[in-house]
């Protein structure tokens, strides 16, 4: 039988063991009181009681802004980012789902080299959570898509190694783990949101107009979404005659997102909201029929005008979820 229980008393030492495998990052609280994944120099900085960070872990794989190539004298070369090995500790199941989705997008048929390079050096240590009023995830994927998963129970954690990397870490920490369970795991009620019918975006639900009127297009919902990955690509010449091409997070709620020479695919805010709904809850080819909403609750929490696109899945006449 595997030794897979970690008592609270061994926690700090366990964290120090993780550090042997790379730079340790985890949920912390910033000086201004914002939960954020950031470098951890002392285990006491870790906030295991965090609900959700403002920016999801996608920032480790797809930074807000990055140079993707540079050019000079008619030649260009891909930019190389020297990412260190990072151990990301304390990722909740919703964010693990978010990364699993991004992996499908960026590591699919033609892998994105910038993303792939960072992903290969990112070790994920998951952590169970207790949902709050904003949460609506579908629960923990089986098996969880991470290297190591810690389930809070009693006076410690159950530790599951789920990849070769995870087993390597568990092996290194074996003297800290015990056979004896630390307590019972509390099963959690999860609601989730299933993939929606694409036609629902053309419904005559009056909420569409309400949302289109009140949305301030601040972009926070998308910036803070663990699965929003759209980016803008821009090229800047430099004074030395060369130049760079960079990519930066873009947002389907911005008027520029659907703009092409002479026209705009989605000129009104209503059309942009419908498009966001389509992508988020219905999925795009080849991920059609797959919701990319992981239920983390960030979009609702950060929206200045309390927009919740999920409300559109409820039929206004019957107050029940549409089939």
């Amino acid at each position: 039988m595997d030794k897979k229980y970690l008592k609270n008393g061994q926690f700090s030492e366990f964290i120090e063991t993780l550090r042997l495998f790379g730079d340790l990052h985890g949920p912390t609280m910033s000086d201004t009181g914002v939960f954020a994944f950031s470098p951890v120099s002392d285990p006491s900085q870790l906030r295991l009681d965090y609900q959700r960070t403002q920016i999801p872990p996608k920032k480790y794989l797809l930074p807000f802004r990055e140079e993707i190539l540079s050019y000079r004298e008619g030649n260009y070369r891909q930019s190389h980012h020297h990412t260190p090995e990072i151990i990301l500790f304390g990722v909740h199941p919703c964010d693990l789902d978010g990364i699993a989705y991004l992996d499908r997008v960026f590591l699919g048929d033609s892998p994105d080299p910038c993303y792939a390079g960072r992903r290969a050096r990112l070790t994920l240590v998951g952590l169970s959570c207790v949902p709050d009023d904003f949460c609506f995830c579908s629960g923990l994927a089986e098996p969880p898509t991470c290297d190591l998963f810690l389930t809070l129970q009693g006076d410690g954690f159950k530790v599951d190694a789920l990849s070769a990397r995870g087993k390597e870490i568990a092996q290194a920490a074996k003297d800290l783990l015990s056979l004896e369970a630390t307590g019972a795991t509390v099963p959690l009620q999860r609601t989730g949101i299933t993939a929606q019918d694409p036609q629902l975006r053309f419904s005559d639900n009056p909420l569409w107009d309400k949302f289109a009127t009140t949305c301030v297009s601040c972009g926070a919902c998308s910036v803070c979404c663990p699965t929003c990955y759209c980016f803008d690509v821009r090229e800047y010449p430099s004074l030395d005659g060369g130049g760079i091409r960079l990519r930066e997070w873009d947002n389907c709620l911005f008027v520029t997102h659907g703009e092409v020479a002479g026209a705009n695919f989605r000129g009104s805010r209503l059309e942009r909201l419908r498009y966001r709904f389509l992508h988020k809850y219905c999925g795009f080819t080849p991920l059609q029929g797959m919701t990319s909403c992981v239920g983390c609750g960030r979009c609702k929490e950060v929206c200045p005008v309390d927009i919740d696109l999920r409300e559109l899945t409820v039929n206004p006449d019957q107050g029940t979820e549409s089939p």
Binding site: S30, T32, I55, V216, G219, A220, V223, C224, V302
Partner: peptide
Amino acid sequence: PPLQSYPVCTECRSRENLCLLL
């Protein structure tokens, strides 16, 4: 140069600042 068009909130949230408005 290419144009950028997004509100201050976009960069503000991405920097993980505390939202002063909300």
